[in-house]
Amino acid sequence: MAVTDDQMAEALMALAEARGTGKTFCPSEVARRLADDWRPLMPELRRIAAALPLEATQKGKPVDPRRARGPIRLSLDQSRAGSRG
């Protein structure tokens, strides 16, 4: 069964909200919850994360999750939190 964009978005936001403000997570945590073969989901999760009220960081600095190479961390972006739709 294929994982939809909506399922990925919901899972990303659920984990971010469960962690709370100021706490980060790796997108692979979401991918592993969604599929046994999780690695192919990673580019899609990064694409979807870019459209959500999430902040992506790498070594503590903000990055575009679609363009960053290597591991990133995601967290609730308080400046965009009200724009979730």
Rank of each mutant, 00 (worst) to 15 (best):
P40G: 13
D36R: 14
S28A: 14
P71V: 09
R73T: 03
L34Y: 09
L45Q: 01
A35I: 07
D37M: 07
L74E: 01
Q7C: 06
R80D: 15
K23N: 10
A81N: 00
P40W: 07
L74T: 00
D6W: 06
T24D: 01
G22E: 01
V3K: 02
R73S: 08
D36H: 14
A16S: 03
D5C: 00
I48A: 05
A9D: 02
A49C: 08
I48R: 03
T21E: 12
E10T: 08
L45C: 07
A31M: 07
P62Q: 11
V63L: 06
A2L: 11
L41R: 11
G82E: 12
V30P: 02
E10H: 05
E55V: 12
R39S: 12
R73L: 10
A81K: 00
A11P: 01
R66S: 06
D5W: 07
D36V: 13
L34I: 14
R66A: 08
S28Q: 11
R19H: 08
Q58R: 10
Q7M: 14
A14C: 05
I48P: 01
S83M: 13
F25N: 03
L45H: 01
R73G: 01
P71G: 00
L45T: 02
S75G: 04
R73F: 04
L54T: 04
D64V: 09
P62H: 09
L76H: 04
R32K: 15
A9Y: 06
I48F: 07
Q78Y: 06
S28I: 10
A68L: 09
L52W: 10
T57Q: 09
S75P: 00
L12T: 03
R67P: 04
M8I: 15
P53W: 07
G70D: 07
E17Q: 13
D77C: 05
E44W: 02
L76I: 08
L74G: 01
T4A: 10
M13I: 15
I48Y: 03
G82S: 09
Q7I: 06
A49F: 05
C26W: 01
R46V: 07
A68V: 08
R66V: 15
S28G: 04
C26Q: 11
G85D: 15
Q58L: 12
A35T: 09
A31C: 12
A14F: 10
A16P: 00
R69E: 15
L34N: 06
D64C: 08
R73Y: 01
R33K: 15
P71L: 12
A68H: 06
R69T: 13
L34C: 11
V3S: 01
Q58V: 12
L12G: 00
S75K: 14
D64W: 12
R39D: 09
T57I: 08
C26K: 08
S75R: 15
E17V: 14
L54A: 07
G20W: 05
P27L: 00
E10C: 02
G20P: 02
E44H: 11
R32Y: 10
A50Y: 13
G22N: 02
P53N: 10
M13F: 14
